[in-house]
Design a protein around this nucleic acid. Structure first.
Lengths: 219, 219
DNA sequence: ATTACTAATCATCGAGTAG
DNA sequence: TCTACTCGATGATTAGTAA
């Protein structure tokens, strides 16, 4: 399929033409997609020819609906991208150990989080988190993690306070089994919180400023 | 961006070129993408020119890595599709208020339905339904709803009569929290039944023939 | 105003082939 | 073997314009 046809089909879907006929004109679509009115006209004809959209002309403009086949075509594209960003291999992030504000320990003391982390870690988590500030390259990888789903841990309410959903990734920090934990919603974190069965500072002899390397599995 | 360049960039990303340099040849890529070796060569040059990939030639082939910009370009595409399938699953149906035959009120008086609706609505439902006759465009949207599952409410038997399963969709009618309710089985309805915590006719000052707009969420 | 035809222009592709 | 050039063919895009 031509690149423009696909882009137009996607644009139509975004406008809600999946659920209902939408009123459009070739000129208005041209403006949105960034092509000429003529190109849109041709593209619509091609899309119709391939059975990806249905059209009915109106006095001023036309009504367009994406067909079942059109939705299927878009879904195929979607899953191709999904595979890239959601499917897991491992990435390695390096950074330096930093001091947090004790938040990690507080959250780890909540039963709702603690039990779930124990399940994923396969052992009782140590009662504190190690904060790692990734270096420049690592920041990108962190953004990558933010986009992934990870092991979801649902939120809960305790003592009148709301604890949002978090997510965990299996990881290895200097060879030690661990979990990287972050809120499910918040994007663009700049610090990595690592949970393990042991006190990582003691076990790995880390101080603030120590360089560490973390291999994260995105499963 | 050309359709081929994007497809190739996506393919490279799928092969893991986001996290590390990967060894490829133009011929091998050609096989995967379904283009000629020459086209791949050109496309790689274009991608490099736009700063979407980094390349380093090797004795037999080359090493390719998708750059930050390349990942951003892919993410942009990805979120465009994501919007279609994950986020934008609300449809708006407009129509005019009509008079029903009191069926809604009768069904709402049945405990089996009433309790379930209370659960989904989050409040005790008012003892009547508002009937809305969708306009021409809306009819199709309604068909779309018929196809969806919605919140299922099982059927039951009461006083020797059988009450079939129904389904509900969270909705907003002119900003008021409500539910759109319909039988699970029957297809091709031509009337929308809306349930809310309040008497919608009074609250929204509606009469037969009033135009209303309903935003239905298909969760 | 809107669609879509025609013709000209421009990009893209694949074959052949040089480096 | 591999990359990337040239060239002719094919396809895509646009301007102009008719309906």
């Amino acid at each position: 399929m031509g690149g423009t046809d696909l882009a137009l089909l996607r644009e139509l879907a975004t406008m809600g033409c999946i659920h209902k006929r939408a009123h459009v004109t070739t000129a208005s679509l041209a403006k949105v997609v960034g092509l000429s009115q003529q190109s849109i006209s041709l593209s619509l004809i091609r899309l119709q020819g391939r059975g990806l959209i249905e059209r009915s002309m109106a006095a001023r403009g036309q009504f367009v609906k994406v067909t079942k086949g059109g939705v299927a075509a878009l879904k195929k594209e979607y899953s191709a991208y999904k595979r890239i960003f959601e499917e897991g291999d491992t990435i390695t992030i390096s950074g330096i150990v930093a001091t947090g504000f004790g938040e990690g320990a507080y959250y780890l003391s909540r039963k709702g989080y603690r039990d779930a982390l124990k399940l994923f870690l396969g052992a009782k988590p140590y009662s504190g988190t190690l904060n790692v500030k990734p270096d420049a390259e690592g920041i990108e990888s962190l953004d990558c993690l933010s986009g992934h789903v990870g092991q979801g841990i649902p939120g809960f309410v305790e003592g009148g306070r709301t604890f949002g959903p978090i997510k965990a990734f299996k990881a290895e920090i200097e060879g030690v089994e661990s979990l990287v934990v972050m809120p499910s919603r918040t994007h663009h974190r700049d610090v990595l919180e690592v949970v393990a069965a042991v006190n990582l500072r003691d076990t790995l002899d880390l101080k603030d400023g120590s360089r560490v390397s973390i291999k994260v599995t995105m499963a």
